[in-house]
Structure formats: structure tokens, C-alpha cells
Simulated scan of single mutants.
Amino acid sequence: MSAWSIGGRPMLRTASPEALAARDPLGMASFPLVPFSNRIADARFDWAGQSHAITRNFAPEPHAIHGIGWTSHWSVREADDQRVVLTLDHRGDARWPFAFAAEQIVELTPDTLTVTLTACNLEAFDVPLACGHHPYFPAACARLRFAAERRWPPDARMLPGDPVEIADREVDFAVAERALDCAFSGWDGAATIAWPDTALRIDSDVDHAVVYTPAGAPHFCFEPVAHLPNRLSVIVAPGASHRATMRLIAQPANVGA
């Protein structure tokens, strides 16, 4: 996704011409996370008694990151001014060993953007398979609020360290004042971003989130995801699916005050 604005006001980061020309997902407004989110340590994991090495795709880190959907070619199944359906058929390769079929549905109303990402297990056995979203939001004068049970500060290798209980479950801070790259568990599926001129509600059906607020950057991320980094904890049976919906709802500025 390259942009989303309401009345000329960007609600997501707008991709630059350079990012569009390069087809660089790290320069877009949002990209899909499937079949896992964040990092898998050293691009290796064990499953059903077998060790799997997958492609390292985020040099110079030794890890695999964000799954394969963000760098894959998706086919357009249908498209009009209000709704787009994209599909991805993955048969298993060095990037990810298990076959799955994924679908993105992007829907617009005058004040809402909804992205529904679904992945179906095409194997004849249980596999780890999860969906999530990686949106970028304008950082200038932004305030982020949400509720969660625990935060998981990263260690020196950018993998989750020991969890920290959030006493009152409330996370509330000005984005410019705190540099984070941290996972949260026990998220209640709702968050608010407030700017001086508008606000945005984020609703999702997953219960984890990753917050990335790089110091001095013009953007930040609040990522609805289904599991912690380096934890392939969402298991899907043959023929079954996992789904993650992200709904962004523009609201008056005083909603986030």
C-alpha cells in the first residue's frame, strides 16, 4: 500500500517516488506480514522434529524478518475504487518451507481503511502460519495510546528479552519522546493515535503488537500481529486459515485528547 489520506491529510505515510520506483516495501505506507511477523533468530527454526534454515532477508542482521509476503508478487483478483482483492500462492521454497495461499482484501469508506489478511495452510499437516500488518504513521506531534499486559524489550540481538508487566495496562506517550522497538502481548485490540488536527483509531482481531518509534524519524509503526518475535506460536491445521484484520478509523482530534 502506497498511501491513504482523508481530505488531503495523510493518515499513513505516503510512499516516495523513489520507493515506488524501487518497489521497496520499507518505503511504503503499509505492507503485509505472512507467514510470520518480526524476526526468526538466525533464520532457523525447528518444526516437527526437523530443523529448517530459511533465507536471511534483512542484512546485516543474521535473522529472517517479516515473513515473505512483504517482498512477494501478489496477483490482483479484483479491484475498484472501494475494494481491492490480492492473492499470493506460495508453494514452499528457501524463504519458507511450507505451502500456503494468502489473500488481502483492502476496503475503503469515507473515513475508514480496512485490510483483512488471511492465510490458508496447503500442507497435509499442522504448520506455523500467522498474519499481521506493518503500517507506517506520520510521527510529527503524534501521541500513541493502547492497553496491553506485557512489554518485551529486545536484547542486543533484537530478540525479545524478559517480559515486563504493565501495572495499569495503559501505554500512553508522545511518539517523539520515546524511541522504541518493542513487542507487546495481551493487547486488547484497540489503539488510538492523536495528532493536533485529527485522530485515528486502530482496531484488530489479534492480541499482540510491535511498536517501532525510531528517534528523529518522520514516521513510526504500530503493528497488529499475532505472536511475539521469534515465537512461531500460531499453529494452523491442514486446510484451515489464520486471519488478521486491521481497521483504521479517522476520528475528530479531540477523541485522542
Results as ranks from 00 to 15, higher is better:
99 A>I: 08
81 D>F: 12
112 T>C: 06
60 P>E: 00
128 P>V: 03
154 P>E: 12
126 D>M: 03
67 G>P: 05
67 G>R: 02
101 A>K: 11
108 L>R: 11
142 A>T: 11
98 F>H: 05
125 F>Y: 14
93 D>E: 04
150 R>P: 12
118 T>R: 04
108 L>H: 08
67 G>T: 02
137 F>S: 09
88 L>D: 01
90 H>E: 01
59 A>G: 09
68 I>W: 03
76 V>M: 07
147 A>H: 15
76 V>R: 03
126 D>V: 11
128 P>N: 00
69 G>V: 05
74 W>I: 11
74 W>Y: 10
86 L>K: 07
103 E>H: 01
145 R>A: 13
137 F>C: 12
147 A>F: 15
124 A>E: 11
65 I>A: 06
102 A>Q: 04
145 R>Y: 14
153 P>T: 07
151 R>S: 12
94 A>N: 07
154 P>Y: 14
138 P>S: 10
125 F>C: 09
143 R>L: 11
137 F>M: 09
106 V>I: 14
149 E>N: 14
107 E>T: 15
88 L>C: 02
105 I>R: 08
82 Q>T: 15
110 P>G: 03
114 T>C: 11
136 Y>D: 06
104 Q>M: 12
128 P>F: 06
123 E>D: 15
67 G>H: 04
60 P>S: 02
94 A>S: 06
86 L>H: 13
126 D>F: 06
114 T>S: 12
68 I>V: 13
141 C>M: 12
147 A>P: 02
140 A>Y: 10
128 P>S: 04
74 W>N: 04
73 H>E: 04
155 D>L: 09
84 V>I: 15
121 N>E: 02
104 Q>Y: 06
74 W>F: 12
77 R>K: 11
101 A>E: 12
102 A>G: 12
156 A>R: 09
70 W>S: 07
59 A>M: 10
103 E>W: 01
154 P>A: 15
146 F>L: 15
67 G>K: 02
82 Q>P: 06
139 A>C: 08
125 F>M: 11
156 A>H: 06
144 L>H: 09
124 A>S: 14
143 R>E: 11
151 R>D: 07
110 P>Q: 00
128 P>K: 02
128 P>Y: 03
133 H>V: 07
88 L>H: 13
97 P>L: 11
83 R>I: 13
152 W>E: 00
127 V>K: 10
130 A>C: 10
69 G>C: 07
117 L>W: 06
83 R>K: 12
79 A>D: 04
73 H>V: 09
135 P>Q: 07
129 L>A: 08
152 W>Y: 13
92 G>F: 10
92 G>D: 08
135 P>S: 07
80 D>Q: 06
135 P>K: 08
143 R>P: 13
102 A>T: 10
96 W>D: 03
87 T>F: 00
150 R>H: 15
102 A>K: 05
61 E>S: 14
145 R>H: 13
145 R>G: 10
83 R>A: 10
84 V>N: 00
130 A>P: 00
131 C>I: 09
88 L>G: 02
147 A>S: 15
97 P>M: 08
114 T>F: 09
